[in-house]
Design a binder for these strands. Structure first.
Lengths: 234, 234
DNA sequence: TCAAAAGTGTTAAATGTACACCCATGG
DNA sequence: CCATGGGTGTACATTTAACACTTTTGA
């Protein structure tokens, strides 16, 4: 096609901000870069998009290759297209945002063994663009968590209300009144109380809950799990 | 760079959903495609990204070339990367969303004279991907209009409260109680009442308002200009 | 003087938030 | 029996939305 032949072509990559959650709070997966520029530096996990796949497929593939997990929650974040982002070759980067339950993470899936979790409170220096992408991702997780049942992606199947509550506090970096947030969470009806208790935290024990498959289907939005003033707009 | 040389490259285009507003409601600018595939079909205005520009610059350039306007409100919408979107050549498309005051539109800026406004209620058939992009844009305008002072971009500098109110109704396709929305709009303090009146609509005449340069700087969010139930999340 | 649109206030309901006490249990 | 975290309810403040009458003025 003559019209197309006049046009330039670009490298096209995906960068994934993969979050997990543990006692340190939120973590993000970084890996050592295996190629220039910034070879050996830590960076978000990513890869080039191939001819025969969409960016979404490429991102899924990246995540699968680093974690060994197949069906990871993932959404498109933002496209970064500035020139001179990387010094050697101009590359279009499409950022994705993803969440996993860290208990399902399989380190050995990462053949090169270059990937490592870092607490988001204590990150190494990244290339400026990745720092920016991370900022977008931290906004996005707060934005969604306030409105949608998203944070469950970070927890095991069974969890206590306190675990969930604490997760909200870590994500928002704010303390929430236990009585209010617990009640709101329970009122959603997307939680099913299990007969078992987690006895680790107290003598009395706290009941485990899981997501209700049935209710989650019809469920659309939280009525303000977190106080309105902490809601973001995007 | 040997690593890069193994990677595929892609065409990279921007597609812009440019909205304007008049008595017909919201309009979108479409143009006849000058190249295959779908040559002569109507499509969103767009263009390829050049080597020496970011996607944002490319989109600004597209909008400027079709409208003659320089500083157009614009934001990134979503990247569409599916294979087989277009039949001949695989192209990555980054969609942008933009708003103008139709009174500033200069038809003659469009050298090929291929661009035309269409009421969004009455659009011709577009390629499926552009239909999808438009859906994203219609969501986005509602999402933002509910929270941010965005719709002013569609109006002339001076406007009446009724014009603004009607615009909200067209965007959301809902009737809003005049007493509530007018009061909320005025309470924001981002509106300045002008001494002049628009006498076209009534004997009494309705005061013109304009945006307050001063207040708009500090302004962040509407407290629910439109009822909460009409808010979207993205 | 009247028709037609502009302008404005009140109230009831729902929602959000602050707050404190009892419960169950294992040691 | 008591220390520890688990579990729950109430009341007040704020926000939201429904609703209707008065004003202005040109013809």
């Amino acid at each position: 096609m003559s019209f197309y032949s006049e046009q330039k072509k670009f490298f096209f990559a995906v960068d994934c901000v993969l979050f997990s959650y543990d006692d340190n709070g939120l973590n993000v997966l970084l890996s050592k870069r295996l190629y220039e520029p910034f070879k050996q530096n830590l960076s978000l996990v990513g890869g080039f998009v191939n001819e025969n796949e969409s960016a979404e497929e490429a991102a899924k593939q990246v995540l699968q290759s680093f974690t060994g997990i197949d069906n990871i929650y993932m959404e498109q974040l933002y496209a970064f297209t500035d020139i001179g982002r990387e010094t050697t070759q101009r590359t279009i980067s499409l950022a994705y945002f993803a969440l996993i339950n860290i208990q399902e993470f399989k380190q050995q899936a990462d053949k090169e063994n270059t990937a490592q979790w870092f607490a988001i409170e204590n990150l190494p220096e990244l290339i400026p663009e990745h720092t920016k992408i991370l900022e977008f991702a931290k906004e996005r997780i707060k934005y969604r968590a306030a409105k949608q049942p998203l944070l469950f992606e970070l927890l095991p199947e069974k969890f206590t209300i306190l675990q969930l509550h604490t997760l909200y506090e870590k994500v928002f970096d704010i303390q929430f009144d236990r009585r209010n947030i617990d009640r709101k969470l329970k009122q959603t009806n997307i939680l099913v109380k299990l007969p078992e208790k987690d006895k680790a935290g107290s003598r009395r024990g706290a009941f485990y809950y899981k997501l209700s498959e049935k209710e989650i289907k019809n469920f659309t939005e939280f009525g303000n799990i977190v106080p309105l003033k902490y809601h973001l707009s995007m």
